[in-house]
């Protein structure tokens, strides 16, 4: 009996692609697609679903990771594969914490999605070893430490060093030092340029 799949993806093109791939596959049955992740749990209450392909950034700022967390609590047997093209640094760890079964980068992974789906349903947990490499200034995202990325993400809010420090339970001086280090590493000229570039390449994205 084919596995029943729900696709949660707000972009028409990827959504249609997934639908096509699933319909072409004998192991899977396409049930429905939703654009807004906040409706996914309710859908799972109404229909039997075996597997969800879940985008992270969905319609109306609904977070696929938040929805996955809710679904895993209510339906631990439903397998979830996070599907994204963005190299955001924190999503892989967050997905692991939630208990998401697999994580797939749309353009980067050599395996196609159907293979990942099959392996996931067979009990494997497929996660990339690291985020995709993207350039930021004169370095890549892998040259930044976790703490630096954490601070860079907070800087997206536009808050001051003091406000960021209070949220992360460190001193404003430490925040300042990390920012200076990042500017030195990347060769970028200002805090604003650093944040703009990081947002542009997608290594940090504001939480929804």
């Amino acid at each position: 009996m084919p596995y029943r799949v729900l696709v949660v993806e707000d972009q028409m093109m990827p959504k249609q692609l997934f639908e096509i791939y699933i319909k072409e596959s004998k192991e899977f049955e396409f049930v429905a697609s939703l654009s807004d992740a906040s409706l996914a749990l309710t859908f799972c209450k109404a229909q039997n679903i075996d597997l969800i392909l879940m985008d992270v950034m969905t319609a109306h700022d609904s977070s696929g990771l938040d929805a996955s967390s809710e679904i895993k609590k209510a339906f631990p047997n439903i397998k979830i594969i996070i599907v994204t093209s963005l190299p955001e640094y924190s999503w892989i760890n967050r997905a692991k914490e939630i208990g998401v079964d697999s994580f797939w980068y749309k353009e980067i992974n050599k395996e196609n999605i159907i293979e990942v789906m099959k392996r996931t349903m067979n009990g494997e947990s497929i996660y990339p070893e690291e985020t995709p490499v993207v350039k930021i200034g004169s370095i890549t995202n892998h040259d930044l430490t976790d703490r630096e990325l954490e601070i860079l993400k907070e800087m997206l809010t536009g808050d001051s060093n003091a406000e960021i420090a209070a949220r992360l339970f460190i001193s404003p001086g430490t925040v300042k030092r990390h920012v200076e280090n990042m500017l030195l590493k990347t060769g970028l000229h200002s805090r604003t340029e650093l944040v703009a570039e990081a947002g542009r390449v997608g290594i940090v994205i504001k939480d929804m």
């Binding site: 972009q11 028409m12 093109m13 990827p14 692609l17 950034m57 093209s85 963005l86 749309k106 353009e107 800087m155 997206l156 809010t157 536009g158 808050d159 001051s160 604003t192 944040v195 703009a196 947002g199 542009r200 997608g202 994205i205 504001k206």
Partner: peptide, 23 residues
Amino acid sequence: NKALKEYNQNMQHIIHDNEILSA
């Protein structure tokens, strides 16, 4: 910071467009 927040808003649309382009 205000400009950064607005930029960030625009960035969401750019990411959205990038994903469509990739597809």
